[in-house]
């Protein structure tokens, strides 16, 4: 199994993060068994259109607090669109339009009156391809903080704490003023996560965060996700079903804009209720 290979490489070359992984695995089992669930966000009859083309169709589902929710499905099934709707990044596309509601903290965040700028501070996003600013590592993190006019001493603290949270501090603390582009792909992606964490968001949206990375870097990012869900609610879009199975608590399977099945990951992968889910996770189509 390729999965096993990955782990061996991991153990040989990256002892430390692997220790963390074991810990976080334990926490995961605990939390899914004993924690009560609390809904942070509720999607109600949500549809997204690009001009006349309905990309997301009447979806109802919750996103639970301090859990990892994975969105899986074949390319073009609408999972990325759905994710980009949650922080209103789809507003960028002039033909995009929404119907239905996303209720978050007592507010339908799809309302016109919502300030998307403030919303995006609370709902951070990390993209498929690492996209650090072509600036020094440190400035990647301070960029947004300066815009928000945080005091200087606080900024210094946040730089350190967010890089630590993203498990990047040890690798970068001596070269914070080097260009972020000098980092490896995996490090860049963790920097992007650190950059989002610096704003102390409540939700983190990850759009195929490991698809542009090599297996070792991917494993590191996965470890990080497991670690982060203690403090953050995470929604992740992934092509990689093994990844979804490894890191998520809940999984939503989408197909052609419809939400086919939603449920606890362990149940959905072992005992899918829908035929199409079963076909997809068993690799009959992709």
């Amino acid at each position: 199994m390729p999965k096993l290979d990955k782990r061996t490489i991991n153990e040989q070359e990256y002892d430390k993060p692997n220790m963390k992984k074991r810990e976080s695995k334990e926490i995961r089992t605990e939390s899914s068994e004993f924690n009560t669930t609390e809904t942070l966000m509720n999607l109600k009859n949500l549809s997204v259109y690009y001009a006349d083309n309905q990309a997301v169709k009447n979806i109802d589902m919750p996103i639970e607090k301090n859990k990892v929710t994975a969105f899986i499905g074949p390319s073009g099934c609408g999972k990325s669109t759905l994710l980009r709707t949650i922080n209103r990044m789809n507003d960028q596309i002039s033909v995009a339009r929404y119907e239905g509601e996303i209720n978050y903290d007592g507010l339908n965040i799809l309302r016109k009156e919502v300030d998307v700028v403030t919303l995006r501070k609370e709902i951070g996003m990390v993209f498929q391809e690492p996209n650090p600013f072509p600036k020094p590592i440190k400035q990647n993190i301070t960029h947004a903080l300066k815009f928000m006019k945080k005091p200087k001493n606080e900024i210094e603290e946040i730089v350190e704490s967010s890089l630590k949270q993203a498990a990047l501090w040890e690798e970068t603390k001596d070269r914070l003023n080097n260009s972020a582009l000098s980092l490896s792909g995996g490090q860049q992606q963790r920097l992007c996560i650190a950059r989002a964490l610096a704003l102390k968001p409540k939700v983190l949206l990850l759009d195929e965060p490991t698809s542009a990375l090599d297996p070792i870097s991917s494993a590191k990012v996965e470890d990080l996700i497991m670690e982060l869900k203690k403090h953050y609610t995470i929604a992740v879009v992934t092509h990689n079903m093994e990844q979804a199975a490894r890191i998520s608590d809940n999984t939503a399977f989408m197909y052609n804009g419809d939400l086919i099945e939603f449920g606890e990951t362990s149940r959905l992968f072992t005992n899918p209720r829908e035929k199409r889910t079963e076909d997809y996770i068993s690799g009959k189509f992709s």
Binding site: D105, G106, L107, N108, I109, R111, E113, V114, D115, T118, L119, E122
Partner: peptide, 12 residues
């Protein structure tokens, strides 16, 4: 905050 949707921190 839940009930006061017209005075929510996320509104413009």
């Amino acid at each position: 905050q839940k009930s006061e949707t017209n005075n929510h921190r996320l509104l413009k």
